[in-house]
Computed example of a mutant assay.
Amino acid sequence: MSIGNSPEDERPFPDVSEEARTSVGRALQQARIAAGLTVDAVSSATRVRIAIVHAIEADDFAPCGGDVYARGHIRTLARAVHLDPAPLIEQFDAEHGGRPAPTPAAPLFEAERIRPERRGPNWTAAMVAAIVAVVGFVGFTAFKGGGAGNDAKSQVAEGTTTTPSKSSSPTPKKGKPAEPTSEASDSAIAAAPQDKVTVQVSAPGGRSWISAKDHNGRMLFDGLLKKGESKTFQDNSKINLILGDAGAIQLYVNGKKIEDNFRPGAVERLTYTKGDPEAG
């Protein structure tokens, strides 16, 4: 009779190997078949693509895009085929290195506290500075303008007492003969030189366009003669005239008044020489 454990007690305990355990994908597939669901039906109910459902049932979790997404798909598919997802998630974590440890919250908050605060621009100070600058500029401009005005007034006063105005006696422009007034008398016209032809054109009753040329065809005047104005032309031998409204024109040729009664609005072409007043 032996003392101790019997040989039956020393037999090894039955070993349940990993291979005997149903995989996560196989468990999901069996539950789907038992529920009478197709892969298309599960995909439509869970919005998980058909290809991913097939891959998970074949224990291929690479198409999931990572362990986090794989856990989510396992949980969704398990609920669709009426399985408890918790054991399947634990089995998946055990087979794939375990669930990652959560990140402690304290270092994150600590880092957030020591992070320098980013401040925006101080708009209030900028606005105050801008207002001060504008007020200063306006004051300076007003002060400067007042000083300049006083200087200008003093210069004007001095100028009126010491320097005569240059604009009081305008200088006639060169190249233009002096224009006689419309009230020139016959005696003044009679003083015209005898060796030249002198023609005075005046417009006492209206205005008229006139043109005057010398014996060489050089233009002496071409323009509008207004009411009350007059022009005098001289040449050594001949003056050619064109009157746009002859009825408004009074002519004096070589000191004598031309008595022709021109019709209002009539255009007249006239030529006068020395010894006229006969129209040529």
Results as ranks from 00 to 15, higher is better:
residue 3 I to Q: 13
residue 3 I to D: 14
residue 3 I to W: 12
residue 7 P to Q: 09
residue 7 P to S: 09
residue 11 R to Q: 11
residue 14 P to D: 04
residue 14 P to F: 05
residue 17 S to V: 03
residue 19 E to L: 12
residue 25 G to Q: 02
residue 26 R to H: 03
residue 28 L to C: 01
residue 34 A to I: 03
residue 40 D to F: 00
residue 41 A to F: 01
residue 44 S to A: 15
residue 56 I to P: 01
residue 57 E to S: 05
residue 64 C to F: 00
residue 64 C to K: 00
residue 65 G to R: 03
residue 67 D to G: 11
residue 73 H to N: 01
residue 75 R to H: 11
residue 80 A to P: 05
residue 83 L to K: 11
residue 83 L to V: 07
residue 89 I to S: 02
residue 90 E to H: 06
residue 92 F to E: 03
residue 94 A to I: 10
residue 100 P to Y: 10
residue 111 A to P: 00
residue 116 P to N: 06
residue 121 P to Y: 04
residue 121 P to C: 03
residue 122 N to I: 03
residue 123 W to S: 10
residue 124 T to H: 12
residue 127 M to H: 05
residue 128 V to R: 06
residue 128 V to W: 02
residue 131 I to V: 15
residue 132 V to N: 01
residue 132 V to A: 15
residue 133 A to H: 03
residue 140 F to R: 02
residue 143 F to R: 06
residue 143 F to E: 04
residue 144 K to G: 08
residue 150 N to I: 15
residue 151 D to N: 10
residue 153 K to Y: 07
residue 155 Q to S: 13
residue 158 E to R: 12
residue 158 E to S: 12
residue 161 T to M: 10
residue 162 T to M: 11
residue 165 S to Q: 11
residue 168 S to M: 07
residue 175 G to A: 03
residue 175 G to Y: 01
residue 176 K to W: 07
residue 178 A to H: 08
residue 182 S to I: 15
residue 183 E to C: 02
residue 183 E to K: 10
residue 186 D to C: 03
residue 195 D to E: 12
residue 197 V to R: 07
residue 199 V to T: 06
residue 204 P to R: 08
residue 207 R to S: 14
residue 209 W to E: 09
residue 210 I to S: 05
residue 213 K to L: 04
residue 213 K to D: 08
residue 213 K to Q: 12
residue 218 R to S: 13
residue 219 M to C: 03
residue 221 F to P: 01
residue 225 L to C: 11
residue 227 K to S: 05
residue 235 D to M: 08
residue 237 S to R: 11
residue 238 K to S: 12
residue 239 I to G: 01
residue 240 N to W: 02
residue 247 G to L: 13
residue 248 A to D: 14
residue 249 I to S: 10
residue 250 Q to N: 15
residue 252 Y to F: 10
residue 259 E to L: 14
residue 275 G to C: 05
residue 280 G to C: 07
